[in-house]
Design a binder for these strands. Structure first.
Length: 589
RNA sequence: GGUCUCGUGGUGUAGCGGCCUAACAUGCGGCCCUGUCAAGGCCGAGAUCGCGGGUUCGAAUCCCGUCGGGACCGCCA
């Protein structure tokens, strides 16, 4: 038997028990006479005490032991001598007096220390030795937290009458949306499976199949460029329900999250119960994004009316070409240096701004790049309207509304980080609702579905489908939290005629519709129930709950920003024989 | 595809034209040490400063290119 207990579970109540432990040497402290090892397993760390009265060969062995050796310890649990307790350790009241030590496996010197997060190595090195990096308490805890989150979801949904159903990883390529990862077929040369961007079609077909309430911890694949919160494969809690309206879905998921957060991450507070519902339009107007961070204010304000007769050419120009003048007020930032303002202007430009006029409210009146061009009356009405106080910095965007919103939304987040405006223990969940159904693509001059092509339009907008597609609202919704999109969902189309119209609006030919989506349309002819669902992203959720800066920290084996697994070195070339079987040849190498 | 940024012993940093024969911490090796918990003390080994080219009397340091990492924009139905 390798062990009778885990390292982290021992407490004062175990005093007097003989135990066997197995684990890694986290630290060693050799005093020449007495020596200590901290033995670690997933459950935690416990101090092993080696007294000098052990046999010589055991003491010689102790001399050789180094960090991360795997040991088996047989010993006696004892309360530590008075004054020697360590309140910083879960097991700090006791120690295990070693009677026998077995080396299960020695270890080479590791490329980095795993017993401390100080001097964290370069991420590439961490990823190359991911199996070592995961030994860190922090990453181990992340894996445990992730397990708890998924376990809670399964238990909760089970109680609510959901069943978990697996859907294929090898499925069919879809024309719209993200790029597909393709899997060549050996049996059908020249044909490909696609890895699902989400189980969207399959879960709808499960509704047609009468499964009623389905969920799955589903892996999704999208071949797009990566970010800190985006991996090529990621995990969603995918769920779908029959005979529901929007609020049935929202209430269910809100209930799940509201109960889950205190259970798995008690230090996190919820912003509000029930969650706010914010229309897409309001989110864009007030926060400049459809995934607002609601942990702080600094809302965008439209001040076009104040500058209707402005002398400032920049403002004039924006208004005369149909744009707006909007601003945000950054608290206690009137003294920002020229250098900082310049750097921030670059941020604004990267978001599409042509410039970034500012007004600093100081005891000696307003200063800043716009101060020369604004009248005293304008300043007074501005200060009153946006509630700017001495020491505040007002930043403007004057442009087409969409650009102004985007720029100020970006600056708002920049100030959040600079001024520490957001409480990191707050989970500011909200629903974004009433999305437009179509988005106009300026490049291709076509209408595209804003969500996905299976989303139900609002019934009252059906007659605007052709006359005014931009005004059609959809029964889609997003869950946002702290500036991240956490989930996306919708009530789906369950009627063949509406789905057909949708595909036609998106410019698909009858032939394309038949070959790409024929199975969906046919399914809808056999009595498809009204249904809807959503899919919360698990990686981002765990990232926020674990206070991690990116989702790689909560994924056991993530890929780097260029989509590479640096541990196994994938993707990699394959044997010519494999390519030949698939009848694949490359034009050049 | 674009913008910004980083690359110095095993690891993390400092150095940013000559004081560099590259510093500090940690890890590593050796010795000492009976109550530590980032144990402590002493000694020692370990880096052609990512790579290539250029400027210069002289380059870790400046310039160009390239490779690799990260952040962001595009992209992500």
């Amino acid at each position: 038997m390798y062990r009778t207990h885990t390292c982290g579970e021992l407490r004062a109540s175990h005093a007097g028990e003989s135990v066997t432990l197995s684990g890694w040497v986290n630290r060693r402290r050799d005093h020449g006479g007495v020596a200590f090892f901290d033995l670690r397993d997933r459950s935690g760390v416990v101090q092993i005490t080696i007294n000098p009265d052990l046999p010589k060969e055991t003491l010689d062995l102790v001399e050789d032991v180094r960090f991360e050796w795997v040991l088996q310890i047989e010993g006696l649990v004892q309360k530590r001598p008075a004054g020697n307790e360590n309140p910083n350790m879960e097991t700090g009241e006791i120690e295990v007096i070693a009677k026998n030590i077995t080396v299960l496996n020695p270890a080479k010197t590791l490329p980095f220390m795993v017993s401390s997060d100080a001097d964290l190595p370069d991420e590439n090195t961490r990823l190359k030795y991911r199996y070592l990096d995961l030994r860190r308490e922090r990453l181990t805890n992340n894996m445990v937290l992730r397990h708890k989150v998924i376990k809670f979801m399964r238990d909760y949904l089970d109680k609510q009458g959901f069943i978990e159903i697996e859907t294929p990883i090898m499925f069919k390529a879809t024309p719209e949306g993200a790029r597909d990862y393709l899997v060549p077929s050996r049996i059908y040369p020249g044909q490909f499976y696609a890895l699902p961007q989400s189980p969207q079609q399959l879960k709808q077909l499960l509704m047609v199949a009468g499964m009623d309430k389905y969920f799955q911890i589903a892996r999704c694949f999208r071949d797009e460029d990566l970010r800190g919160d985006r991996q090529p494969e990621f995990t969603q809690l995918d769920l779908e329900m029959s005979y529901v309206h929007r609020d049935d879905v929202l209430d269910l998921v809100e209930g799940l999250f509201t109960e889950m957060i205190p259970a798995v991450a008690p230090h996190k507070k919820l912003l509000s119960k029930p969650w706010r519902k914010i229309s897409y339009r309001e989110a864009m107007e007030k926060y400049g994004t459809d995934k607002p961070d609601l942990r702080f204010g600094m809302e965008l304000q439209d001040v076009s009316d104040i500058f209707a007769k402005s002398e400032f050419k920049v403002f004039q120009g924006a208004l005369s070409s149909g744009g707006v003048i909007k601003c945000i007020v950054a608290p206690k930032s009137a003294d920002m240096s020229r250098k900082e303002i310049d750097a921030l202007t670059e941020v604004a430009k990267s978001l599409g701004a042509k410039g970034m006029p500012t007004l600093a409210v100081t005891s000696e009146g307003v200063k800043g790049s716009a101060s020369k061009f604004v009248s005293a009356e304008e300043v007074e009405s501005l200060k009153a309207k946006v509630n700017a106080k001495e020491g505040d910095l007002i930043l403007f965007a004057s442009d087409a509304k969409a650009i102004a919103n985007k720029v100020l939304g970006g600056l708002r987040v920049w100030f959040r980080d600079k001024l520490n405006l957001a409480d990191e223990n707050l989970m500011a969940f909200a629903w974004i609702v009433d999305f437009p159904f179509f988005a106009y693509n300026e490049e291709t001059k076509t209408w595209e579905s804003e969500h996905h092509p299976f989303t139900m339009p609002k019934l009252e907008d059906l007659d605007k489908f052709e006359s005014n597609p931009g005004e059609v609202m959809s029964d889609a919704y997003d869950m946002v939290c702290n500036g991240y999109e956490m989930a996306s969902g919708s009530i789906r189309i369950h009627r063949r005629d509406v789905q057909m119209k949708m595909f036609q609006m998106l410019g698909l030919s009858d032939e394309e519709i038949k070959t790409k989506f024929g199975h969906m349309l046919e399914a809808f002819e056999y009595g498809a129930p009204p249904h809807g669902g959503m899919a919360p992203g698990i990686d981002r959720l765990v990232m926020l709950l674990a206070d991690e800066p990116n989702i790689r920290e909560v994924i056991a084996f993530p890929k780097n920003q260029t989509g590479r697994d640096v541990m196994a070195d994938a993707p990699s070339e394959v044997e010519p024989k494999q390519l030949k079987e698939l009848q694949i040849k490359f034009e050049q190498k």
